[in-house]
Design a protein around this nucleic acid. Structure first.
Lengths: 157, 157
DNA sequence: TATGAAATACTTCGCCC
DNA sequence: GGGCGAAGTATTTCATA
C-alpha cells in the first residue's frame, strides 16, 4: 500500500501511534488485531527503518507564557547552496525558531517562531533574525489562531 | 518560572516529554530527581491542566509516499468572523491539510499541505482548496527541504 | 507533597507454529 | 511472518510520614 515493506497492519500502527504516541503496546496490538509480541516487533522495525522518527509530547505554548507565534518569510540575496546552508545553520541554532522550511519561489525560507510577548519577538527579529547572513527581506505575520495542527501525514485512524 | 502552578520540576518534565514522548515514567522520574509515583502524579496533572495536550509519533512522510509538502497562503474576500470560520471548517476537514493558521496582514491563512506527488497536489488545489468559500487568492510554495521541525516551545533539555 | 511497598499490568525474550 | 508462555520491569495504588 505504501513504501517498501510497509503493509496494511504497519499503516494502522503508524496511524494509531501518530494519533496517540503513548499508547501501550498491548492496546496497540489489540487495535490492529495482533498479539503483543509481533506488534512490538513491527513497532521496533518501523523505528529502525526510520518510518517513525521520534515521539513527542505536545505542550501548550500559552500555558508556558508563549503567547506569540509568528510566521517569518525570509528572502536571501544569494541562493547559492553555501549561502542557503549558512542561513539555515544560523536559524536552526535559535531556540525561538521551531521550524525552518526552504521553499521555492520568491520566499526562500519560511520560519515558525515562538516568543513570550511582542517585545521579545521584536528583539528576536532585530537582533537575531534580520542580521542573519545574506538576508535581504523578512516579512512576518502574527498567528491569530490555529485551527488545525496535526503532525505527519493522513493515515487511517 | 512559568504559568500558574508550574514549577521547575514540571518544566523539566515538559522538556523531557517534549523531547521523548515515549520515555517511561521511571526514567523520567530519574531524570527530574523524583521517584516514580510523584512523577506520575505530576504528569497526570500536566495532562489534566492542558499543559500537555497530546502525544504523537512523528512519521516520515517520504516513507509513506508523501513526497510533497506545500505552504499555501490564502487570502479571503471577507474577513467577517463568520466567513473566516466557514473557511476554517472547510479546510480543517481536508486530510491533506495538516496545519491551518489564521494570520494578520494581507495573508489571511497559511496552510501546510501534504500530497503524494505534484499531480495529486494540483488536483487538491483546484478541486478542494481554491473552490473553498470566500477565497480570493491562493499562493503556494513547495518545500524544498526542512532543516528544523520541532514541536512546542523552547524548554530546558 | 514525597516516599516505600505491594498488586497489577506491560514489555520482551525464547520457542513453537 | 504470528502466537504462547514466562521472566523481568514498569505502572499504579495505598498507607505513611
Amino acid at each position: 500500500m505504501a513504501g517498501p515493506n510497509i503493509d496494511d497492519i504497519d499503516l494502522q500502527i503508524l496511524g494509531e501511534l501518530q494519533n496517540d504516541g503513548r499508547m501501550t503496546n498491548v492496546e496497540l496490538a489489540r487495535k490492529v488485531g495482533l498479539t503483543a509480541p509481533p506488534c512490538l516487533r513491527r513497532v521496533r522495525a518501523l523505528e529502525e527503518s526510520g518510518a517513525i522518527t521520534s515521539y513527542h509530547a505536545v505542550v501548550d505554548p500559552a500555558m508556558l507564557g508563549y503567547t506569540i507565534t509568528v510566521f517569518a518569510m525570509v528572502s536571501l540575496k544569494s541562493q547559492a547552496e553555501s549561502d542557503l546552508k549558512a542561513f539555515q545553520e544560523h536559524v536552526d541554532a535559535l531556540p525561538e525558531v521551531r521550524e525552518c522550511h526552504m521553499l521555492n519561489g520568491e520566499i526562500d525560507f519560511i520560519l515558525k517562531v515562538v516568543a513570550k510577548d511582542l517585545q521579545s519577538f521584536q528583539q528576536f527579529l532585530t537582533s537575531k533574525l534580520t542580521p542573519a547572513p545574506n538576508v535581504v527581506s523578512v516579512k512576518t505575520s502574527l498567528t491569530i489562531r490555529t485551527s488545525k495542527n496535526l503532525p505527519g501525514v493522513p493515515l487511517p485512524v
